[in-house]
Amino acid sequence: MLRLIIMRLLAAVGVVLGAAVVTFFATRAMGDPALAIAGGPESQPTPEVLAQIRADYGLDDPLVVQFLAYLGNLLTGDLGTSYRLEVPVTAAIGEQLPSTLLLALGAAVVAVIVSFVLALATAGRPSRKASGVLELAFASTPVFWLGLLLLSLFSYGLGWFPSISTSDPRSLVLPSVTLGLPIGGLLTQVLRTALEEALEQPFVLSARARGLGEAAVRLRHALRHSLIPYLTMSGYVAGALLGGAVITETLFNRQGIGSLLLSSVTTQDLPVVMGIVVLSAAIFALVNLLVDLSYPIIDRRLKEHAA
């Protein structure tokens, strides 16, 4: 088991490093970083200014040297300095991270509640059709559209929730629903399909024949069998959260990684963009590591195979 954890951990580090390498070369391929630091082509910097910037930021060195320096810094936790904010990238990200984590957590709670309630209540029952339509609507609604809809209904219309973020915990509700509902729709479909498959298994018939009620059959037997595909899909979806966070945070005027990413991309603040990409890769790897490690807990038979 320990060996498995170590192997998976190394793989996760590999994923993060891979993401770092790709972003490094991709951003370099996009254009001259010195021009970006100077403020973009519109600022029309003189060649002297650009040369000065290159010297200051070490952009004169061969690409390999720059890359190794970047990698070395990365391993010590140094993501560089923001061109625009002129603070360390780690500090810029660290400042925004709690707000986004809170939003992601809220969205996850919404998605889990929606998917568990809908899937457990409708799996194998006639109501699955109605639920299927609902999920499809959730899953296919663009985040910005859903957000606007919720805003006009619950904020501008009914006035139940604030439209912009404040310290009021109620201001977290609409963004969480906006970000979580489409994910919930997708996860409901995955969970219900898995539940329906499990409910057809002979052990479910056995359990019912023992006098177990429907709730016990679903919660104690079928649900556990459905958790593996559910968690696998959740792991993938976790990676897509950041994309949704950009829109949600902009829409609700929230501080966070999403809005930081947006402003950094528009101002070509490359170290921050790269830092956020590396961070999201790390979160993705971490979530999937946890998902992988949960498998043998759910299904003890997998422990023997892994050993």
């Binding site: 002979p202 056995s206 024949a209 023992r210 006098g211 177990l212 009620g213 759910i298």
Partner: peptide, 24 residues
């Protein structure tokens, strides 16, 4: 029915590998 199942009538299926919950 739930009081009857298991209590008055026991039911045994074939192939216990899948008729017992394989995760428990």
């Amino acid at each position: 029915w739930r009081e009857v199942r298991g209590n008055r009538i026991g039911f045994v299926l074939q192939d216990a590998l899948v008729s017992l919950d394989p995760l428990r």
